[in-house]
């Protein structure tokens, strides 16, 4: 039987600035499976980031419901959402959001210090190919390396889901591919359910499933019969 990690029902998010109402999500029904690598594809403003933020416990929906396994996230308060993020979710952002005053190892330790069953910080960095850069500060690393530190930081707590918002958006093709390799490896070896948001259509080839977004709605879902390895992708 297929296990769900996320399930949404009629998920709607309206941004109300007083004069203008923007429907970022407009009745999204979606199921995401345990262990899969899903790519959410769509243009800017199609609502994919909003969905990711709600799934990650950073935002609340205006209406509709959302579950993480059996946990109903819809009405959780700030404290419970903090707890949820701490225990279950790993985030990777387009702008790596590393703490500049902490070295690579220390940035990862930020998470391992508070997680219940973390891997060793050095081990996480080794998984992303940065075993030789443990004590370097963000300013001393390239963009690709910084993003890999961010991924190491996200996976170090052994999260059940890894949410990646345009992880290659700020990187050139070659560096971006290296980052995707890391994501793929983690999905394969750790079985972490991974959701990657991108507007880069090239990336969809590496996913188990591709979910297309347009105007706050799901435009279509397709499964890749054959997955392409990241090093075969370029843009």
């Amino acid at each position: 039987m297929v296990q769900f990690v996320f399930r949404t029902e009629g998920l709607t998010k309206v941004y109300d600035s007083g004069e203008v109402q923007v429907r970022a999500l407009d009745g999204v029904d979606l199921e995401l499976y345990a262990g899969e690598l899903a790519v959410l594809l769509g243009a800017s403003g199609s609502g994919k980031s909003t969905l990711l933020n709600i799934l990650g416990g950073l935002d609340h929906a205006t209406s509709g419901r959302v579950w993480f396994r059996d946990l109903d996230l819809t009405d959780l308060g700030d404290r419970a959402l903090t707890r949820y993020r701490r225990d279950h979710v790993g985030f990777v952002f387009q702008f790596y959001n590393l703490v500049p005053s902490l070295s690579a190892r220390e940035n990862v330790q930020l998470v391992t210090d508070v997680a219940a069953d973390p891997m060793d910080a050095a081990e996480a960095l080794e998984m992303v190919g940065l075993a030789h850069r443990l004590d370097h500060f963000p300013a001393e690393m390239s963009g690709g390396e910084q993003q890999r530190v961010a991924i190491a930081r996200a996976i170090a707590k052994r999260p059940e889901v890894l949410l990646c918002d345009e992880p290659t958006g700020a990187l050139d093709s070659k560096t971006g591919v290296a980052v995707l390799e890391v994501l793929n490896t983690i999905n394969d070896t750790l079985g972490t359910s991974t959701i990657v948001i991108t507007h880069n259509a090239g990336i969809q080839a590496m996913a188990h499933r591709v979910i297309r977004f347009a105007d706050g709605r799901i435009g279509g879902v397709s499964e890749n019969a054959r997955r392409v390895a990241p090093h075969e992708i370029s843009w």
């Binding site: 903090t82 707890r83 985030f91 959001n97 590393l98 703490v99 500049p100 930020l110 998470v111």
Partner: peptide, 10 residues
């Protein structure tokens, strides 16, 4: 940084 920490679950 502080927002990152919040997202990381602090």
């Amino acid at each position: 940084e502080l927002a990152s920490l919040r997202i990381l679950g602090f």
